[in-house]
Every structure is written in structure tokens, then in C-alpha cells.
């Protein structure tokens, strides 16, 4: 049983990372993760998954995220200026700051279903099969979402004709 809790514990940093990338808001992200953990813990005796714990946690987190988007649409949510505070202060040297900021904006303006899919693959390193299960969609749908997301990102970089991120050194 506590082995199960250990597995949940090990997933917490990744859940925070994913939630932060989805919401762009530290407090909102940690609220989602807390809700997710509470649900997972409360289900551990009756509803624990037969398979690995990590994808199951991401499924719970995504459901909560979608619910929060729905209630946001209903009630409206003030978006704080702090959103920008989650930008990394010092981006890695191989990327120009402008490019990163632009990419961040492009990711945030992706339709939610594309953003969810892209981040599961590119940030969390799930396999296509796992990600498709987490999202509850066929693998082909997942891949087309990924493809569309990446085309959008490329276009937003002003480089749609030339498929290359400029590297500013």
C-alpha cells in the first residue's frame, strides 16, 4: 500500500511540471496537483489502477484541468500578471530569449487538446500509446493533434517556409 503511495510521490514533480505548463500559473497548477493527489489517494483502496500509476495520475490531472477550464468559461477567471513570472529568467543559451518567449506564447494559444497532447509527448516523454490512453483517444487522433500543434508552432515562429528555428548565439 505504501509502495503505491511512493509511486504517487515519485510522480509529483512531473505532475507539477505538466500542470504548470498547462496553466501557466503556479498556484493554479499546484491546486490542480493537490486535487489530483487527494483523488488518487482516496481511490487507492478501491479504485487503484491495475497498470502503472503515472499515466493514471495524469488522466486524473487532465480531467481536473478540463473541469477547471469549463468552470472558467462559465464564471470567468482573472488572469494575473504573475503569469509572466513563470517564464524562465535565463533561457538555455542555444535558444534566443525572443524565440523562447514566442514559442511559449504559441504553445499557450494552442487549442487545449493540442497543448495537452504535445506536452504529454514533448515534455513528459510518454509513448504515443500511453498518451493516447491518457487522453482517451485513438493513437491516430493523437498523432494528428501533435502534427497540427507542431505546424502551428513552426508557423508562429515566422519560419513556415524555412523549417528551422533561428539559433541566436
Amino acid at each position: 500500500m505504501s509502495d503505491f503511495l511512493d509511486q504517487i510521490e515519485q510522480a509529483v514533480p512531473a505532475l507539477r511540471r505538466y500542470a504548470r505548463a498547462l496553466t501557466r500559473n503556479l498556484d493554479l497548477a499546484d491546486d490542480l496537483v493537490q486535487d489530483c493527489l487527494e483523488r488518487a489517494i482516496s481511490r487507492r483502496s478501491l479504485f487503484r489502477p491495475r497498470g502503472p500509476v503515472r499515466p493514471w495520475l495524469f488522466t486524473i490531472l487532465l480531467n481536473l484541468f478540463r473541469n477547471s477550464l469549463r468552470s472558467e468559461r462559465r464564471h470567468g477567471t482573472a488572469v494575473g500578471l504573475d503569469d509572466l513570472a513563470t517564464e524562465p529568467a535565463t533561457p538555455a543559451p542555444q535558444h534566443g530569449h525572443m524565440e523562447l518567449a514566442e514559442l511559449a506564447r504559441a504553445i499557450q494559444s494552442l487549442p487545449p487538446e493540442q497543448k495537452e497532447a504535445l506536452l504529454l509527448i514533448a515534455l513528459e516523454g510518454f509513448s504515443y500509446n500511453e498518451a493516447a490512453k491518457i487522453l482517451g483517444i485513438p493513437q491516430g487522433t493523437l498523432m494528428s493533434r501533435l502534427g497540427r500543434a507542431r505546424t502551428t508552432l513552426r508557423a508562429s515562429n515566422g519560419n513556415s517556409s524555412e523549417p528551422r528555428l533561428r539559433t541566436v548565439k
Binding site: 514533480p13 512531473a14 507539477r16 511540471r17 533561457p91 538555455a92 514559442l103 511559449a104 514533448a122 513552426r154
Partner: peptide
């Protein structure tokens, strides 16, 4: 490079 950029943007939260 898109993958690398996504990691640069969001991976630090896990640390």
C-alpha cells in the same frame, strides 16, 4: 528543437 525548447521552458518546474 521544438522539443528542446519545450523542455527549456517547462522542465525546471519539476526540479
Amino acid at each position: 528543437r521544438q522539443r528542446d525548447a519545450i523542455a527549456t521552458l517547462y522542465a525546471p518546474a519539476a526540479a
